Simulated scan of single mutants.
Amino acid sequence: MKQFIIAIALTGALISCKNAGENKQEADDSAVAETVEDNTADQVTTNYVPIDSDEALIAASLMAAPEASRAGCKVIGYNMAGEFVTLREGDNEFIVLADDPKKSGFNAACYHKSLEPFMARGRELRAEGKTGPEIFDIREEEAKSGKLDMGKQGSTLHIYYGESDLYNPETNEVEGAHYRYVVYLPFATAESTGLPEKPVGSNHPWIMNPGTHRAHIMISPLPDKNKN
């Protein structure tokens, strides 16, 4: 009789363990299903479209400017017809140089208006057919002589660039675009700033063209992975 009672008890225990295991497996399966469902819900498709109008070109190019200043920026550059024009008048301290729609990829810039003589001189020399090194040498000489105004010390250039020429019309963001910042400090050096002449990391500031009219601090933030 005692052995019979023990056998019944063991059978009950095995059945209980089996039911507990099945319940746990059902719970695990349910959790996995919910996770998959949540991940699927989070995958929102962005409808990027070509920049095919002056309005779209202006909107996307303004992303180069600080968000709080975009409404008042002047926008210049090539329009969709290939003419270099003022695309939009502005009333604040920034000028946006729009992306050139005839070139592949996307590259817009925003700079402090005190840099306009320096920027305009570069465009003028480029239109004359001067090469990069020639433009550098001419502006170097003109800056040293005082003929070329290099703007306020510490004036900043904001660059918004990427390989794609598609944008999201809802947010104006260009597909896969990144930011880079340039702080102009004419004739500054590594010694005068304490910055290295080469980056010590992919997102570390450094000084480029030290000791020249084009001396500037380079800052390249890491890409926002949530937007790529």
Rank of each mutant, 00 (worst) to 15 (best):
V182T: 12
V182C: 10
V183W: 05
V183M: 11
V183F: 09
Y184Q: 07
Y184W: 09
Y184N: 07
L185R: 00
L185T: 01
P186C: 04
P186H: 01
P186S: 05
F187E: 00
F187C: 00
A188H: 00
T189C: 04
T189D: 01
T189E: 01
T189K: 01
A190S: 14
E191Y: 04
S192P: 01
S192M: 04
T193A: 03
T193C: 03
T193V: 03
G194C: 07
G194W: 03
G194Y: 05
L195F: 08
E197P: 02
E197A: 11
K198F: 14
K198C: 11
P199W: 04
P199I: 03
V200M: 13
V200F: 13
G201L: 10
G201Y: 10
S202E: 14
S202W: 12
S202T: 14
N203G: 10
H204I: 15
P205T: 06
W206Y: 13
W206P: 00
W206R: 05
M208H: 09
N209A: 15
N209L: 11
N209V: 10
N209H: 13
N209Y: 12
P210Q: 08
P210Y: 02
G211W: 00
G211S: 07
G211L: 03
T212S: 10
H213S: 10
H213M: 09
H213Y: 12
R214F: 14
R214Y: 14
R214D: 13
R214N: 14
A215K: 03
A215L: 06
A215M: 06
A215P: 01
H216N: 08
H216C: 08
M218V: 15
M218A: 11
M218H: 09
M218F: 08
M218N: 12
M218I: 13
I219Y: 13
I219Q: 11
I219S: 10
